[in-house]
Amino acid sequence: MWAFIHKLGSPPWFFGFSGTLVRWLLPVTVTLLLVGAVWGLLVAPPDFRQGNSYRIIYIHVPAAVVALAGYYVMAFAGAVSLIWRIKMADVTMRAAAPVGAVLTAIALVTGAIWGKPTWGAWWVWDARITSMLILLFLYLGVVALFEAYENKTAAARACAVLSLVGMVNIPIIYKSVDWWYSLHQPASIKFTGESAIDSSMLYPLLLMILAFYCLFALTLLLNMRAELLWTHRDSGWLKQLVGDT
């Protein structure tokens, strides 16, 4: 276990390992996404209250779930980078931020589109949408802070501090927005009630969540590889790798 983690910290080993992983992950992700989308769009029955508009759930919820998980991945990488000063953790954190921001934006946009047939307005200050908006700000803050520093080692450490503080704050933010919403609105208009979701609708949703996790991992690895290729362009292992092909 420790040997594996130790190896992950070495760029040449990671580059080779991630190359193999990406080659597997790409077809798996595409297949999962296509199967999940077709299942959710065409096969699953419509919701008895919302009709067919509920089919947006198959992208909205996975994007929201993985966007939130992505913040934890980023903050965890930040903690590793702060404590052990491992360069690969910096690269991970740097690569996770834009991916998470895009997923958050997807969740917001699909939520807004879903709101139109459900509530008759493109934007409603619903608890979940508001939390996603704040999550987007948190992501954009990390991205902007990284860009603002000229010294990229310092940038990574500053972002690590920020994302750790954000991670501590996220549960508080989510809870407070939840309370704020339930105080001001009747609970009747909700996306998905507490009611149990039928398995014919649940399975494609779980499949799509899995697909979005794979997609997150895939894009994270791709971004890390691109970053490594550039920052290590002068190192021997990469020159040898290029020469061999």
């Binding site: 009709g51 089919r55 946009v109 699909t110 589109i113 139109k116 047939p117 997609l215 895939l218």
Partner: peptide, 22 residues
């Protein structure tokens, strides 16, 4: 049943960034 515009718009606006992201 009248929701096609919203559903397809949402899926299109998701597919585009996903493809770009990869």
């Amino acid at each position: 049943d009248g929701h096609g515009f919203y559903v397809w718009l949402a899926y299109a606006l998701t597919a585009l960034p996903l493809v770009l992201m990869v």
